[in-house]
């Protein structure tokens, strides 16, 4: 029993291997994917992706993106996917601060797209911090 998981970001292919199950942060709530799941395309919001391989659970902090599930394959397209040890706390905090400041200067009624983008940046950084600060 296996499920092929592929995590791809614009910069590189982060992960490509078989796993036992995957939990994704879908836009409508968490999605648990096991083998032979129905074909599915879902948006992803910034949050945590968990997968199990050989009894071990690995957690990654994801940015927003998409997941495509087809039978035995899960493809995750995201703007970032970082493991706990790859997360730079200071950088994430700085990103939140920058985004919050930018958010103040943007006119919310006019530039909805920019607002959504900045909020996504904040959510992404928060997800990273949350994962980083969790006791292991």
């Amino acid at each position: 029993m296996s499920l092929q998981l592929e995590i791809v970001t614009p910069e590189k292919k982060v992960f490509s291997d078989t796993v036992e199950n995957v939990y994704l942060p879908g836009t409508d709530g968490e999605l648990g994917i096991l083998e032979a799941h129905a074909s599915l395309v879902s948006g992803l919001k910034p949050g945590e992706l968990r997968y199990q391989k050989g009894g071990q659970t690995v957690t990654l902090a994801l940015g927003s993106g998409f997941a495509e599930v087809t039978g035995h394959k899960v493809v995750v397209l995201t703007d970032s996917a970082l493991g706990s040890d790859e997360i730079d706390e200071a950088k994430a905090e700085a990103a939140i601060q920058r985004a919050e400041e930018a958010l103040k200067s943007v006119d919310h009624s006019v530039d909805a797209e920019e607002v959504a983008h900045l909020q996504a940046v904040i959510a992404k950084s928060l997800a990273q911090l949350k994962l980083k600060r969790r006791p292991h």
Partner: peptide, 15 residues
Amino acid sequence: KDYLFEPSPADVLGD
């Protein structure tokens, strides 16, 4: 293939 879309095809497409 028959796909499920979450939340909906239009939303996914919009993003």
